[in-house]
């Protein structure tokens, strides 16, 4: 009897979880498909100005409405999301590679190398990373790659810390001793035992960093420091629509904002499910 109760409860909880994971996966599938397929296939000009149709609320012709010069917002949102996702992906990847390399080297080498690397990480962490990011962007001409670089060089710090801690914990395990005793060189221990051990953590850190990097790009664009104003990105869209919000036009800010929040939640949900699989005991909330 008791077992049966437990079963139904466990089953219910499990099905809610799978449902959530499936919903997240579906949202991401739609987003990725839209971003990959719509801009190249639909030969529509996202810059097409139609002043006669400016600031129209959502309708069948323009599902997300139009902006203050009559550009179709759905089309611009898809283009913006494409840019934001690209920046997020590439920046997260670069940041993870830098962070993993620094963290693994610090953890595996130990001693002075570790101390110096970690003090550099501490020092950089002490500078607000938006400020550091603005500095990096300011050095280059405005464009996509300076934004990627700015996000990447400011976001590898937490990954470096996570990876270093993981390496330190793995390095002390008896199986590393056994490998050393079996004649393994430092390099072999690192490649065969340490790196495979940290990859799941580093991968998870990378996935969680994608939404973070998207927000960062949007923040830079919103401040007018990211992409040029004519190029659609979620940050630019929100920035451009600020003025019309006060006039009661809610749609030019709502839809880009939603497109920033929904994929973020979906990616976080998927990453959370992955983390649950990696470590079933740590089913806590996600921190972005």
């Amino acid at each position: 009897m008791a077992e049966q109760v437990w079963r139904t409860r466990g089953g219910a909880r499990r099905s809610t979880r799978t449902l959530r994971v499936r919903a997240c996966a579906a949202v991401m599938a739609v987003v990725v498909l839209a971003v990959l397929v719509v801009p190249p296939l639909a030969q529509l000009d996202q810059q097409a100005v139609d002043l006669a149709a400016k600031l129209q609320p959502p309708s069948w012709a323009h599902p997300f409405g139009t902006d203050d010069v009559g550009r179709d917002l759905l089309l611009r949102c898809v283009h913006g999301l494409r840019v934001s996702l690209l920046v997020g992906l590439v920046a997260a990847l670069v940041a993870t590679v830098i962070g993993t390399a620094v963290g693994a080297a610090a953890g595996a080498l130990g001693g002075w190398a570790d101390r110096i690397a970690m003090r550099v990480v501490d020092t950089l962490s002490a500078i607000p990373h938006l400020l550091l990011g603005i500095f990096v962007v300011a050095v280059f001409r405005p464009g996509l790659w300076p934004v990627v670089a700015s996000v990447a060089v400011t976001h590898w710090l937490s990954t470096a810390r996570i990876v270093r801690a993981e390496v330190l914990s793995l390095r002390g395990r008896p199986y590393v001793d056994a490998a050393v005793s079996g004649g393994a060189s430092r390099w072999r221990v690192a490649v065969r035992h340490l790196v495979p051990g940290i990859l799941p953590q580093a991968g998870l850190a990378a996935v969680l960093m994608i939404p973070h990097a998207m927000w960062h790009e949007s923040a830079l664009s919103f401040l007018g420091l990211g992409l040029p104003a004519h190029q659609a990105s979620l940050g630019n869209l929100v920035q451009g629509a600020r003025g019309s919000l006060l006039a009661g036009h809610w749609w030019p800010t709502l839809f880009p904002g939603l497109l920033l929040i929904v994929p973020t939640l979906a990616i976080a949900g998927l990453a959370g499910a992955w983390r649950d699989r990696l470590n079933p005991r740590r089913r806590s909330e996600l921190t972005l």
Partner: peptide, 8 residues
């Protein structure tokens, strides 16, 4: 190192 085998 390899001249000594270890079992933990």
């Amino acid at each position: 190192r390899t001249a000594v085998g270890v079992v933990f």
